[in-house]
Structures are given as structure tokens and as C-alpha cells.
Design a protein around this nucleic acid. Structure first.
Lengths: 233, 233
DNA sequence: TCTACCCTCGAACACTGTTCGCGTCAAGTA
DNA sequence: TACTTGACGCGAACAGTGTTCGAGGGTAGA
């Protein structure tokens, strides 16, 4: 009963004319929006727009935004290399592993925030990373329990510094506003008795994007030194 | 021109009949909602409802929700006591200060999350806390720069463990869901070659609400040990 | 050719933070 | 005492969010 399409009309577009929707393509689109426009821009509508469709279409491939966030995190973490433990280079390997996590997370602004919000971190690459960290720490002479606790702390370092780093790097923290608040802060402190904030008044120079790396190295250095002392017992 | 109110109508309610709106009362109401119903329930509408008014009324006393969050955090931090440095009890004092921060933050579920989101932590009590931490650390023999970096790391510890602790304690992390995910995780790991996750398979017991305190103590212990070694140089 | 089935997606729902602007009240001034 | 003024209360609305429903269409298998 259906009439064939008139010959002057081009053949009906096949579905595949536009990239087919899939979990992977959705995650990819979400990461593109994240990189280009920041964390707040990553909405279901914006992602759908990127794929030239409506928000409802996404829910056939992703059960909700939380799951999508988890998939984004896992995708990003795929770039982390877990080293083969080499006892001779133990410190350096541990530091490198943490730096690597920060590197990949800071590359996508706001992804560190997702890392905090995932309650139970069990995605394939997180498992791989966790196992690798444990193996590395145990190679340094720690018990399984010690390694677990140390790994927990190190993951925390990575997330915290990556979170801060992405804020500074990507301008999610409004530089002008920060400067304004900084001035107000100094003025406030100077309005109080001079001896009220003898230390705080001089730490401003230590807090900036430039010192982020240095602060991380300091914390890592101290933590690892303490860890090594524990491993010997 | 105005007609006096008819005598059978009760005298118009005075403004003071219901508690007058103020920044302090709004913050108080917000904390009540936070404690009773959790982080997600803290909306401008719910706070207004608690004060028997509409959401628009709040904006006369608080410029936006971000500022309100900051005020909530500051109010909670008021309970922290900053100790007079006593070199003989240095370690214990530092640990106590961190524990104290975690204690007050874990008491209000979700307040730790606010702490992460405040970009430039400059509220009165945060300044007081920062100065106290610096003074304490310097009393342990650290340079101002070392003390700054160490204080940064310690604040990070406090926020991270408080965030996690409140999640567990207050059931924002759905226990049933966690259990389900845990089972799936174990099943997934067992479906892979046995040697793929030799360590991860046995750490489950170390991760629970009960070990949160222990994990913090471990991390603090290691970090402080490393710090003391640095101070001597 | 018919029948399932799954995917697509417009429309709608319930919710969010925030603004506008009209009233009303309280305190200050003449 | 009468009037002005300015601040506050708050109903209504706006733009945006995540998510669901259900009708429709395309594809694959019988």
C-alpha cells in the first residue's frame, strides 16, 4: 500500500548516516563537552545535543547520570600505566603512580570531582589500578593491611591534588574573584591586632597554581618517608 | 484615608510573632535540615519552609546558596579548639587537631562536601584554624614554607576522611547497594584468571566504617613520622 | 510477509537556584 | 502626631536540571 518515494527525492537517510548511539559514543561525547566547556556544562541535554539527538535517547544506553559519570572516570583512568614493581626504584615508582593519576585527571577538568562522588570505586580500570597499587606497595615490604591503608591514603592524595589542580588550571576558580577575596582577607587580618595572624599573613605566596606540584611532592615525600620506616619493622 | 481595622478582627500579627529572619537563623535552620534530612534536602525551599516563609525571603540575608554553604561550614568549625603549642606533646597535638576537625564535620553529614567546594577558604573560623595549625606546626621545628605545605596536606586529610566518614555513618551511601556492588565486584574478579587480583580479593575486610578511624590514624602516623624527620634538618 | 522487539525521541513532570516587583511594616524626621 | 523613607517579606515566575512515559519506526528473525 505504501507508495515508493519519488525518484527526485534522495534515498531516505539510513540510520547509520549519523553516528550510531552507543555507550561508548555517549561517554566520548560527554568527555568532549567536559573538556570544551567544563564540569557544569556536562548535562544530559548538552551531551544529547552533541550527538544530535534528545536527552531521552541517552537513557537507552546509560541508566542514569551517575553511571555515566562512572564510565567517564573509568575511560579516563585507562591511560594510567601500572608499573612492574622494581624494589630498587620503589619510592620513585610510587610517586610516579600518584603523579600519573593526577596527570590524567587534571587533563580533564572536573573529572576529579567525579572520583570523589563515586561511593564504591569498582570499575574495571579502578580495579586494575587498585591491584597495581597494592602489588607495588607490598613489594616495598608492607603487609597487606598496611598496603591497603597506604593505598587508600595515596588515592586520596591523587584525588585531592587533582581536584585542586584542575580548579586552578582550568579557571573554574575565578582568578579575579580569588584575587578580590585575597585582598579582603589580608585587609581583614590587618584590621585585627597585628599579632593575631603572624603566620597566615605571609603564606599567600606559597598558595598558587605554581606551587601545587611542589605541595604534592612535599606531602608525598613526608608520607613515603614515614611509610618506609614502618615497612622495616 | 486608611480605615481602622474592624474590632472583631484580631489585631494584626506583629512581625516578631514569628522568629525574625536573620543570617544566623537561616544558617541554623539550614544545619537543622542538613542533620535531619541530609545534604540533598538542603534546598532554599526546604530551608524557607523550616522558617515558615518562602525561598525569596532568604535572599535578603544571604546572597546565594554558595555563601550560605560557606556560612554553614564556618559555623560548624566554630567548635574546633586550637591548642596552645606544647613541644613535648607535638605529635599528639597535631593528630588531635585533625581528629577534632573530622569530629565536627562528621557530626553534620555532608558538611565535608561543602569544605571541598569552597574555593578560597577564608572565613573567620577557617582563618583562626589555619593560623593555629601553622603556629602548631612551626612549634615543631618546621619552616614557614614547610608548615604551610604540611598544613595544606593535613587539611586535606581532615576533609577527605570526614567526607568518607559522613558518607558511611549517615547512610548516604546505600548499604544495600554497596553490598550488591561488592558481590558483583568479587564475582567479576573471580571470573578473571585467579592471579589477576591476588591482593584486591582480600582487602574487603579492611574497608568498612569500622576501619575508617584506623585508616586515618595510619595515614597520620606515617605522614607525621616523615614530617618529624624533615624538621630535624 | 508477518511479527517481535528494541531503539528513538517529543513531550511532560517534578524539582532546582534565583529574580522581579508589589506590598507592608518599622523607624526616623519634621 | 503625621509623613517619608528604606528595608524586608514573599507570591509568582523563569530558566534550567535529571528523568519517565509512550507512541512511532526500523530492523532482524520466522
Amino acid at each position: 500500500m505504501t507508495v515508493p518515494p519519488p525518484p527526485w527525492r534522495s534515498a531516505p537517510r539510513r540510520r547509520a548516516a549519523k553516528p550510531v548511539l552507543s555507550q561508548a559514543s555517549i561517554v566520548r561525547a560527554a568527555l568532549i563537552v567536559l573538556d570544551d566547556e567544563g564540569f557544569d556544562a556536562v548535562t544530559m541535554r548538552r551531551i544529547a545535543q552533541e550527538l544530535e539527538t534528545g536527552p531521552a535517547s541517552l537513557y537507552a544506553h546509560v541508566s542514569n547520570k551517575e553511571e555515566l559519570a562512572e564510565l567517564m572516570l573509568d575511560t579516563v583512568l585507562a591511560d594510567i600505566l601500572v608499573p612492574e614493581p622494581d624494589p630498587a626504584r620503589w619510592d620513585e615508582q610510587v610517586k610516579e603512580l600518584v603523579r600519573d593519576q593526577i596527570r590524567v585527571m587534571a587533563a580533564h577538568r572536573g573529572i576529579a570531582r567525579i572520583a570523589w562522588d563515586v561511593p564504591v570505586p569498582v570499575t574495571p580500570h579502578l580495579l586494575r589500578l587498585g591491584e597495581g597499587t597494592l602489588a607495588l606497595l607490598r613489594a616495598g615490604g608492607l603487609t597487606l593491611k598496611q598496603a591497603t591503608f597506604a593505598g587508600d591514603a595515596l588515592a586520596l592524595y591523587a584525588k585531592a591534588y587533582a581536584y585542586e589542580a584542575s580548579g586552578w588550571t582550568w579557571g573554574e576558580i575565578d582568578q579575579a574573584e580569588v584575587g578580590e577575596r585575597g585582598k579582603q582577607m589580608v585587609a581583614y587580618m590587618q584590621s585585627l591586632p597585628a599579632e593575631a595572624f603572624p603566620n597566615l599573613l605571609h603564606v599567600g605566596e606559597f598558595f598558587s597554581a605554581e606551587t601545587a606540584q611542589e605541595r604534592l611532592e612535599f606531602a608525598l615525600e613526608a608520607f613515603l618517608a614515614g611509610l618506609k620506616a614502618m615497612a622495616k619493622n
